[in-house]
């Protein structure tokens, strides 16, 4: 579904990503783990067209999307929950979800999906009329994910959804990821919380200073002594 072939990205003279190749197939949850500064967010920013690769190509459903403007990816079925959540602070929860369906015109479908988002995150229903800026960090993350789902994406890109959340909320977020996946949406999950990410994904890539150093089945990686030592703190 999504393929990166030998993608290299520079921030001016500094090479941020070197020769990244990865694939995400239909129906999978793929996670990209790594330490701070390894290039996880840079990879997502490159996929979403915010950065232009110096080398290599990115294809989605057979079409090249390298450097394509973010807003053009949404009608193609890609949705993103950006780093730092990026909720519209002065709009209500409902208005935020409405914005998620910005490219859609089918009123009935939108209101059905709104209900679905509320089922996925009942907390959002309670806060429906509240301004998004007044929500807690965890609720904002739920809103960001619910909003991303409002465009009915085939591929959902999640950037550090568990960042800065209490353990209980991390659990809620990963449960939601399982639910979204069971409804048939493919997910590329960028995470620092390697433990949770590996337990809720099919395959994983490990990034270190801009290179993919390991890849494979999530369960196997979780059992790998090198991963255990470096990322799982065991």
């Amino acid at each position: 579904m999504l393929t990166l072939e030998n993608v290299s990205v520079n921030y001016d003279a500094i090479e941020a990503l070197t020769d990244i190749s990865l694939t995400v197939s239909q129906g999978e949850v793929v996670t990209l783990i790594g330490a701070n500064g390894a290039g996880k967010t840079t990879t997502l920013r490159t996929i979403t067209g915010l950065l232009e690769p110096r080398n290599g190509r990115i294809t989605y459903e057979g079409k090249e999307i390298s450097g394509m403007a973010t807003h053009r990816l949404v009608p193609m079925g890609i949705a993103m929950s950006p780093e730092g959540r990026g909720v519209f602070a002065n709009l209500s929860v409902r208005e935020n979800l409405d914005m998620g369906a910005y490219i859609r015109k089918d009123k009935k479908g939108i209101s059905d999906d709104m209900e679905r988002a509320f089922t996925l995150f009942p907390r959002l229903k309670e806060r429906e009329k509240q301004k998004a800026g007044t929500l807690s960090g965890g609720e904002q993350q739920m809103l960001a994910m619910g909003r991303a789902m409002m465009s009915r994406p085939r591929l959902l890109l999640l950037d550090e959804p568990s960042l800065g959340l209490a353990p209980l909320l991390v659990h809620t977020i990963f449960e939601a990821i399982d639910n979204i996946r069971s409804e048939g949406t493919t997910i590329l999950l960028v995470e620092q919380n390697a433990n949770a990410a590996l337990h809720h994904s099919d395959r994983a890539y490990v990034l270190e200073t801009g290179r993919i150093v390991m890849e494979g089945d999530s369960k196997q990686l979780a059992a790998d002594p090198r991963v255990k030592e470096a990322y799982l703190g065991e």
């Binding site: 979403t48 915010l50 807003h71 990026g86 914005m99 490219i103 909003r147």
Partner: peptide
């Protein structure tokens, strides 16, 4: 950025 991610 979020607006762009909504397709705006």
């Amino acid at each position: 950025l979020a607006a762009e991610a909504m397709g705006v």
